[in-house]
Amino acid sequence: MTAAFYIAAVVAVLATIMVIIETNAVHALLNLIVSLLAVAIVFYVLGAPFAAALEVIVYAGAIMVLFVFVIMMLNLGEAAVAQERRWLAPRMWMAPAGLSAVLLGELIYMLWQGPAAVPVGTTVTPREVGALFFGPYLLVVELASMLLLAGLVGAYHLGRRERAVAKPEMETAREAQQETQR
């Protein structure tokens, strides 16, 4: 079962390397999602199934999806649309697909083992984590909720577009960019 840790570790490192050398933002995000899934498998093998589930649901499932939506919203130029056709080559998605296939093989193997596929060491169950949250770390929960509230208010305020101020600047900047492109 420790082989799962090493395989997932190699996959995580390779996917992260591809994130930082990738030129297309969406491709880099997909590689980052593969890296997060590999780290989730590492969590499971280290005896933290609750953290593994949270990593997949919150990190890969919410934060990265937010990333993808914002990048789609930015819509970086019309040239990117024409470039996508050139970028839709097999060599672009073969690497993340290969790495994901390795993770899938690992997952299938561990599921096939059934109850025998217990991670090594001692598992720290969600019950213990919850007991600590209601006990010594009660204030941590409150602080986290206040932090999320601050993030929510900040994101709402920063995401608002002030049309009276931003629009003339944006239009002059866009005109200048089009002039340089011609």
């Binding site: 919150v58 934060i63 914002v70 999320l148 993030g151 929510l152 900040g154 994101a155 995401g159």
Partner: peptide
């Protein structure tokens, strides 16, 4: 999560 939302905004 909070940092990503503020950072993306």
């Amino acid at each position: 999560a909070a940092e990503v939302s503020v950072g993306l905004a």
